[in-house]
Design a protein around this nucleic acid. Structure first.
Lengths: 121, 121
DNA sequence: TCAGTAGTTCGCAACATATGAACTTATGAA
DNA sequence: TTCATAAGTTCATATGTTGCGAACTACTGA
């Protein structure tokens, strides 16, 4: 099992961040991590926005977020603790993550106008 | 030749925007369009950040930007006039594009510390 | 030592992207 | 009209990326 690698702050790129967050599952994971003070394990996200994600897929998503520099992951025993690197990134790209997270919340709020599914008649 | 399609403002998604701008060529094109009052043709961009882009590739990039809702394209005779839709998008996702463009400029400014190529000995 | 849990890696199928070649459309000159 | 040229698009294909099941590693507690 290869060791976890995190890019240095100066190696984090805008393209990398945008690409990582252009996937809806990764964006949902990141938004939740960024809005939470404590770290979360990977398996907290086996269900993401009403969809279940296979373990292997989830593992790739976490790797993508980590290698883009968006999160920090630390193995703690059998599980992994993931937290957002938003404070560091704020230093390098001020306002970027806040604007993206905000845009996501505007978009999900707007969805109530045109719901994807109707559970109640 | 199929007619040009532009998404309505409410159909523009954050994921779409981020994905479109996660490509360095498209990001460079968009930054230049957004920073310019007048429209630009596609072939203005056959050279982008010191790299030459084949016509067919360029055509796909413009299509990607258009379908993400980032630009508006209008055929004028034999050429195409492209302009940024940033004012509309600002209404839907305030601050998003400004933050991304700003982050890009920070990143390119930082590159002078570690140049990709050495032209002078 | 064994079972169970958390995550990773591998292999492959499905999807996406880049590009040269051939095409369409518009225009100006002969 | 006819031809040549220029701007973009489309198509075919080669290459790259992603998603996921199966098999794996690593840790923990009984």
């Amino acid at each position: 099992m290869r060791p976890l690698t995190h890019p240095a702050l100066e190696d984090i790129t805008v393209e990398g961040i945008l690409h990582a967050l252009s996937d809806p599952v990764r964006a949902a994971i990141y938004v939740q991590l960024a809005g939470s003070a404590c770290a979360h394990t990977c398996s907290n996200f086996l269900q993401v926005s009403d969809r279940s994600i296979p373990k292997s897929t989830l593992s790739q998503h976490f790797r993508a977020l980590r290698e883009a520099g968006l999160i920090r992951s630390e193995r703690q025993g059998v599980e992994m603790h993931n937290s957002s690197r938003c404070q560091e990134i704020e230093q390098r790209f001020p306002g970027l993550l806040a604007a993206i997270v905000n845009a996501h919340s505007i978009q999900s709020a707007g969805h109530s106008r045109a719901p994807q599914r109707m559970k109640t008649e």
